[in-house]
Design a protein around this nucleic acid. Structure first.
Length: 776
DNA sequence: TAACACTTGTTTTTT
DNA sequence: ACAAGTGTTA
């Protein structure tokens, strides 16, 4: 047995290159695998897990965290092929959110939740925030739900609880200057409301896991002991909360392997912190670093072009990605008169290449920066009779009718769920309006109970409503109570049918004969099918007691990427660059390479944002195996009007020797000169733009106003080692060293609260508040 | 309370 | 252009 295990383990290693093998074989301490694009990152992870299993580690002891459910599923399949399905199935493998929601359900009581808690998606969160802002009589223009939620999300990702938030002078100061002084209060109320709804938002799943581990060492101990080996994929896209979970779980045995590519970190807007991977070595002592540098995916030209682009970024771990594939064709940059023409050009080229290169439609992908760009390509592809499949946009489970049905399930599983309650109390319409809901809500708030409790005994809470309304409320209460009852008797699918039938949803759906209504009916039917399938798969896997809460849990953490359908292979793929991460295609079209679109307008103000956009472009190019075409339009229709567009600054970041001759010619005749012209005038234009926005207070935060009024260059010039500075975002810090990088000066600063950061002096916004005299 | 017209922000990416 | 939220009217 031992011998056999060894044979299997070493035969696994035979299928890897030297660097991959070294990374797989090292199991005795923390390791960081820096995996260049297309270097077999997934291969290393799957083989490493298989290797561990063959070495005799039980699957139950292995924790593997992935970025998407799809990645987890695919990896499980591959591992099953290597070591058998039985072992693969018992692995703890999934997204952070999926795995830790599972753990939180097991341990819910320890943190004051019930194990049947429901999960709020972003729109649920925004609805609740909108409600709270209204209840507090605040200006909803100032406290826009999206903004507020973003701020709360950032706090949670940094493990700042409402109490900590309210006690942090720096944050409060920031909020005051941003004219949102009561954010801390909204955060607190929001969190209380979630708790009394026995619900969590996405960020809570990570924050409460940390709170659980912080306050219950025995529980932490239990999982520490269980997870003998921890693997994390896409480590560059983890945030602080995730990092700390991994760190704590690995703190005893130190057997942790994280895989990632700092050059592909593209989720900082969601709280991902590139420092997690840049500083992994200092966070985990005696880390072994492995670099996977051979790209097996793309042609040499594509790899070289991508390298020349990413070299323009300042923050990165050095690596030398190379390809031994054929040299391949050069990258073509095409310009077009309009976005409309861009669509036609791409569609025509796909049609032509398919015939000339005998490529199937499935070999093509069109990648864009924003989902809104998909429409124009849909049109052009449809005109050319080219089949396509769009990823992204709003997912199946975000559709109104689906969310409505799901809300019934949520309320059945967790009657405290406030959002679900509000959503369906008058859907389908049963004559219970805003006024009545308001009264229930007020009663619930003043008695510190859930809406459901008020509904269940309206007289006990002195609801002042007329007899007719009371009757309607009672009918609704009975309906749901009846479902709750049935939930204990019927299986998930049977209950779902019952809900659709008895709630009146079915009746309403059938009566609506409009095309949209028919499509809604179809979607609801599809949801029922999905549930039936869910029950069937779980049963096949030997699970007996399949609960509605399990279905909900799975569904609320599902991504659009995860709902993959069969028979989509022969279609052109349309998706955002973000969702293309981890995928590959023979022929890639990166479209809409224009200023303010790619890089996005939002990202431009900060150097870090700009570097992230460049990484995003890097991700886009490195998806291509054989050919990569880049395009931009000179005019683009956006928000209802057509605007002139200017080629992206990133185009000149690619070394021209990797571009096809006609794109270089084209560049010289039109875009380079035109663009250079533009880039020359950019600075003045940017400044004008800034000034313009300053005069409109709601567009710019006061902090930025203050910062832009400071003469930056003088500050930057005079900066010396040992100086104390006050930075716009990071607060107070000491300059530990200054060095040249390229033509720019860069300061390394140790901030009091934000930790160590690098600042490009050209761009950093700060003031010197203390000079170091010893230096003179 | 429900249906309708009007206004408003929205568009960077998503677990 | 469009969806979503708000206000107005029956």
């Amino acid at each position: 047995m031992q011998q056999k295990g060894k044979d299997n383990a070493s035969s696994l290693l035979d299928k890897l290159n030297e660097a991959q093998r070294a990374a797989v074989e090292f199991c005795d301490g923390p390791s960081l695998v820096i995996a260049g694009a297309g270097s077999g990152k997934t291969r290393v992870l799957t083989y490493k897990i298989a290797y561990l299993l063959e070495k005799g580690l039980p699957p139950f002891y292995i924790l593997a965290l992935t970025f998407t459910n799809k990645a987890a599923r695919e990896m499980k399949i591959r591992i099953a092929e290597l070591v058998g399905e039985k072992k693969a199935r018992s692995l703890w493998m999934g997204t952070f959110h999926a795995i830790f929601s599972r753990i939180l359900r097991n341990e819910a009581e320890a943190i004051g939740f019930q194990s049947n808690f429901t999960i709020f998606d972003t729109s649920d969160s925004n609805n609740l925030i909108r409600l709270i802002v209204k209840e507090m009589n605040l200006d909803d223009k100032l406290y826009r739900p999206g903004h507020v939620h973003g701020q709360i999300s950032r706090a949670k990702n940094s493990l700042i609880t409402p109490a900590m938030y309210a006690a942090n002078d720096e944050i409060l100061q920031y909020d005051r200057m941003a004219k949102r002084p009561r954010l801390f209060e909204i955060y607190e109320r929001y969190q209380n409301r979630l708790r009394s709804a026995n619900s969590m938002d996405f960020d809570d799943l990570l924050m409460y896991t940390n709170i659980l581990f912080r306050d219950h060492k025995d529980i932490l101990e239990k999982y520490r002991n269980q997870f003998q080996y921890i693997l994390v994929d896409e480590y560059q896209d983890t945030n602080f909360a995730q990092h700390l979970i991994v760190k704590q779980l690995a703190d005893i045995h130190h057997r942790v392997c994280v895989v990632g590519d700092d050059a592909q970190s593209i989720y900082s807007f969601r709280g991902a912190n590139i420092d997690n991977i840049l500083k992994f070595k200092s966070n985990f002592q005696e880390t072994q670093i492995f670099k996977l540098e051979q790209n097996y995916r793309s042609t040499q030209n594509i790899v070289n072009a991508a390298n020349s682009l990413i070299k323009k970024n300042s923050e990165q771990i050095f690596k030398d990605v190379f390809s031994e594939n054929e040299p391949g064709e050069k990258i073509e940059i095409r310009s077009s008169f309009s976005d409309f023409e861009e669509g036609l050009i791409v569609a025509n080229k796909i049609a032509r290449m398919r015939l000339e290169e005998h490529a199937s439609y499935g070999a093509f992908a069109i990648l864009y920066r924003t989902n809104a760009q998909s429409r124009i390509f849909e049109e052009s592809l449809r005109k050319n009779n080219i089949p396509y499949r769009i990823y992204g946009g709003l997912s199946f489970y975000q559709r109104k009718e689906i969310k409505d049905v799901i809300s019934y399930f949520r309320l059945i599983v967790n009657p405290s769920d406030e959002e679900a309650f509000r959503r369906i109390i008058n859907y389908p319409t049963r004559g219970i309006g805003d006024v009545t809901v308001g009264k229930i809500s007020a009663a619930a708030a003043s008695h510190q109970v859930s809406l459901w409790q008020v509904l269940s005994s309206p007289t006990a809470y002195n609801l002042e409503i007329n007899a007719g309304t009371l009757k309607k409320l009672d009918a609704f209460q009975t309906l749901i109570a009846d479902f709750i009852d049935k939930n204990n008797q019927l299986n998930v699918f049977e209950l779902a049918q019952e809900v659709v039938k008895n709630s009146g949803i079915a009746k309403e759906a059938y009566e609506d004969m409009t095309p949209e209504g028919m499509s809604r009916t179809q979607n609801i039917q599809e949801l029922l099918n999905a549930m039936s399938e869910f029950v069937a798969t779980r049963q096949e896997q030997g699970e007996e007691n399949i609960q509605l809460v399990d279905f909900l849990s799975e569904v609320s953490l599902l991504t659009d990427q995860d709902t993959d359908k069969e028979g989509e292979a022969e279609k052109v793929t349309l998706m955002t660059v973000h969702s293309a991460k981890g995928l590959e295609f023979d022929h890639v079209f990166v479209v809409g390479m224009e200023e303010d679109l790619f890089p996005s307008q939002m990202a431009k103000s900060e150097i870090r944002g700009l570097e992230e956009e460049r990484r995003l472009f890097y991700v886009a190019i490195t998806r291509a195996k054989k050919t990569c075409s880049i395009s931009y339009a000179k005019s683009r229709f956006k928000n209802g009007i057509t605007n002139p567009a200017v080629p992206s600054r990133f185009l000149k970041d690619i070394d021209p020797k990797y571009l096809s001759s006609d794109s270089i010619l084209g560049a010289e005749s039109s875009f380079m000169t035109q663009a250079d012209d533009f880039w020359g005038s950019m600075r003045t234009e940017r400044i004008q733009k800034q000034e313009r926005t300053i005069s409109i207070p709601k567009k710019v935060t006061p902090l930025q106003q203050v910062a832009s009024s400071i003469p930056l260059s003088k500050e930057a010039e005079n900066l010396e080692e040992g100086d104390v500075i006050e930075h716009e975002r990071f607060g107070r810090g000491v300059v530990t060293s200054i060095e040249m990088s390229g033509n720019d000066r860069r300061a390394f600063v140790d901030f009091e609260s934000a930790g160590k950061k690098q600042l490009l002096l050209k761009f950093a916004k700060f003031t010197i508040i203390g000079h170091n005299e010893n230096n003179r």
